[in-house]
């Protein structure tokens, strides 16, 4: 009797604003895939979703905040990290996730990215890297592989892209991992690890942009990108981040590269103030906000 078969709901539904479905992402785009991992990771980490806040910038990946049934902030282009910094420092009991794209986080927001990593603000930064500006129509970005075609490099990209794990580690991130949208279980696992870690955590997820990056470079559809990720990825946990740069359709080193301990900004601030002000110091902003 089929009516007696109980089927638990899709774990992602609890995270979705279902009244906003279907979403705007193209067929074969990997952003939704990463949201599945995010939903399952939240569930596995047993976080109280009322205390999880998601902050995005602008762009295709910036729309994640709008679809996530959490307290969610779709901020200005490139400024998700400083907004999240204010949010986290003013209420440290929140788990603050920054979910955005490569152009948003690393080009227009690059300065904020390195400084938040340097300060070790306790943020979980998830960067969906599709090698291109999707929302605006496929322009060259800070992660576009050299020689790739984009609408603003119609003769091939002459620039060297950022190696994001190397950048994140150099700037001070305590956790750095890279996966592709193909590595759904590994993404989920890394997200759980990030939720359990304090400090500036960075996860790069390579993700297909079939409409702009794939098509212009004659690389097939989203599925073709996923097959490339599957075939070209080599897992090397602990690989020196200097060696994980990406080339056009070249091999992709994936894995968890950095997992270190370092006091967070707030811990250092509290320590410093307690040491200097002694009895005069009665605690950080948290108590004030809660009162």
């Amino acid at each position: 009797m089929s009516t007696e078969v109980y089927l638990p709901p899709n774990p992602v539904e609890a995270l979705l604003r279902t009244d906003r479905m279907p979403h705007i992402w193209c067929p074969g785009c990997g952003i939704g895939t990463t949201m599945n991992c995010f939903a399952r990771a939240l569930q596995q980490a047993r976080l109280d979703l009322d205390k999880v806040v998601i902050v995005s910038g602008i762009g295709c990946s910036g729309r994640v905040a709008g679809y996530a049934n959490l307290d969610s902030f779709h901020t200005t282009h490139g400024r998700a990290i400083p907004f999240a910094t204010g949010l986290k420092l003013a209420n440290p009991e929140l788990t603050v996730v920054v979910y955005s794209g490569d152009g948003d986080l690393i080009a227009i927001g690059g300065n904020h990215f390195i400084h938040a990593a340097r300060r070790n603000v306790d943020l979980k930064v998830i960067c969906v890297n599709n090698f291109i500006y999707g929302m605006t129509g496929g322009q060259v970005g800070p992660t576009t592989p050299a020689t790739a075609l984009t609408s603003t490099t119609p003769y091939g990209c002459p620039e060297q892209p950022f190696n994001l794990p190397y950048l994140a580690e150099s700037a001070g991130a305590v956790y750095v991992a890279r996966w592709t949208a193909y590595h759904v279980r590994q993404i989920t696992h890394s997200m759980v690890e990030m939720f359990r870690k304090r400090g500036f955590c960075f996860l790069e997820i390579l993700s297909p942009c079939p409409t702009l990056y794939q098509r212009r470079n004659r690389l097939g559809d989203g599925l073709e990108a996923m097959k490339y990720y599957k075939e070209a990825s080599v897992t090397r946990h602990g690989a020196p981040t200097k060696e994980v740069a990406i080339s056009f359709q070249g091999p992709i080193l994936v894995g968890k590269f950095v997992d270190i301990e370092r006091p967070t900004y707030l811990e250092l601030l509290n320590q410093q103030l307690a040491r200097t002000l002694e009895a005069q110091y009665t605690g950080c902003i948290e108590d004030h906000v809660r009162s």
Binding site: V55, F73, P82, F83, A84, T85, G86, L87, K88, L89, A90, N91, L94, I285, H288, V289, R290
Partner: peptide, 8 residues
């Protein structure tokens, strides 16, 4: 503005 939305 992040701090404001956190309550400050």
């Amino acid at each position: 503005q992040g701090a404001v939305w956190a309550g400050a």
